[in-house]
Design a binder for these strands. Structure first.
Lengths: 153, 153
DNA sequence: TATTAATCTATTAAATCTATAGGGCTGTAT
DNA sequence: ATACAGCCCTATAGATTTAATAGATTAATA
């Protein structure tokens, strides 16, 4: 399960993605509109900024905005920044390998190759899906909803 | 990341799988050989038994053993029993659906379809991989290690 | 320089995970 | 009958993670 923190981050990024190239967005506005605890959101946005996903400006007219185009922000990257490695066990992580403490012999472990497959499958999806992809899907779904609504009127 | 509990469970099952059709195994032996805290292991085995994965016999000559052939025990089932649903968000779980609390509109959520893909990819692997598969992989890896050893002698 | 809004440091509250300890009960084999 | 070994319950507790809050500081702008 992904954490609330990461879900908040993704929602915030979608929000900022919708306002891409429209200037900085206030933390307060974002927190209000997406119903995210403001102080908690502060930490999240800061972390994203420190990892190059967001940029910010202080003072009047300041706020947060995407550090790069939505197409270049991958979901995998965001999750890794906030929740850590995607791999179900540390010994198969590509970005943050570590030995499993319970493991005696990594070479002959039967669990490892399965988890490796899982990691690859997850990474394959999340690293290839961008913020832009999610925004497109949202838009399509909204159009469909409006279409259905029209149909009933 | 999967929990220590689940890793212990998988290790225990591999152990019992190696002794399949050789009679019950004592908790104490399993705990010693696989270096799992005994009381903790007790809880794990009991849970697996209550979910039909294991069977047990009391008294002298008793112990735990697989409740069905290794081929019929899937990794996915074991993980679900001990760690809960495989899905990264509750709203895409097939076995334990629940609404995401932060979510306002499931229909237009851009995060959901991505997570649905991830869930399906994970489930596809874990539900199709059995204890037997893991045992085979272990055996092959061990044979290979022995082969390399031979080569050096 | 006053205001604005992000940044930084610290702390708290709650939940979950991991593990340990003890003991009475139940069923099984000898 | 007796010893054995799992069953089941309660309780405890440390560690870690998650979620959230509070207050002081820094930087930018008008």
């Amino acid at each position: 399960m992904i954490s609330k923190k990461t879900k908040y981050a993704l929602k915030a990024l979608l929000y900022l993605g919708r306002k891409y190239n429209q200037g900085p967005v206030l933390i307060s506005d974002l927190a209000r509109d997406e119903r995210i605890p403001k102080k908690f959101l502060e930490l999240i946005l800061l972390t994203l900024k420190n990892n190059g996903v967001l940029q910010s400006r202080k003072g009047k007219g300041g706020g947060y905005y995407l550090g790069k185009p939505p197409r270049e922000i991958s979901v995998g990257n965001v999750i890794r920044i906030l929740d850590g490695p995607l791999a179900p066990v540390p010994c198969v992580s590509e970005t943050a390998y570590a030995k499993c403490q319970e493991c005696t012999d990594e070479q002959t472990c039967g669990i490892r190759p399965v988890m490796k497959d899982v990691r690859d499958a997850i990474a394959n999806i999340l690293d290839k899906t961008s913020l832009a992809d999610m925004l497109e899907r949202e838009e399509k779904a909204e159009q469909q909803e409006r279409g259905i609504l029209q149909y009933f009127i």
